[in-house]
Amino acid sequence: MSAPILRVENVAKRFVTATGTVEALAETSIEVREGEFVAVIGPSGCGKSTLFNIIGGLDSADGGRVLVEGKPIAGSHRDIGMVFQEESTFPWRTVVENVAFPLEVAGMGRRAREEKAMRFVRLVGLDGFERRYPAELSGGMRQRTALARTLCAEPRILLMDEPFAALDEQTRMLLGEKLIEICQALKQTTLLITHNLSEAVQLSDRVLVMSFRPGRIKRTVAIDLPRPRTSDVIASERFASYLGTIWEDLKAEAAKGLAALETARRAPAGR
């Protein structure tokens, strides 16, 4: 098997706040091979976004390192393309101008970049909407615009933090299907961070289950479902059995997460 294109080695992160120290990540290690689709799943607050920010170079780790093709990286790296959980399309740019953003940053001329951006607009199925502004689109279309913008920079690794979290279940299923299609077409290496079980299983070759605070990879589940995949896969028995297997591990962590949330809620009442 080929050497991993992305390696996260023993990454650790603490946040020191007024109320104390939060150990967000401890000794987290991940390997992603070229062309692979890997999902990291964990309950809210387990350190997923922290991991996302460290891999993407927007935050620094307190220990460990991130390597692309065996070379340690610092700061944002052009081989890693990030898609954010929040609404991140620029409201003052049309769809195609949003998608062409990284090309404009790189200094490409207007004609060339619009032509190239249109390829990615079509890829995410937004042709016909390229002259619209984000405010005129649905949440799912805006998130596809953000995805196309990131893909347009042709990163070797696509890194996403709960990109569909703000969307409704059905839109998410269809978008998941679209994402599988895109990643297969581009042979895109992808690391998807999510808290959604069926999304993780539907899309991935491997699912990594994260533990709750400190976050680390607790278990790896290889998803041996046929490709090319569609959303129909959720009807299969094996899909259900994967959900069951992962939930066994996730359940305890989710419970810890919920307990932590409830403790935090209770604290102010005691003042």
Binding site: S76, G81, F84, E87, S88, F90, W92, P102, V105
Partner: peptide, 24 residues
């Protein structure tokens, strides 16, 4: 998140001002 997008795409200081702050 706009600023984080800018950082993710490696914008230089001047580009950050021109392409993110000014239009926003």
């Amino acid at each position: 998140v706009f600023v984080r997008v800018g950082r993710a795409f490696n914008l230089r200081g001047g580009q950050m001002v021109r392409m993110i702050y000014l239009p926003a």
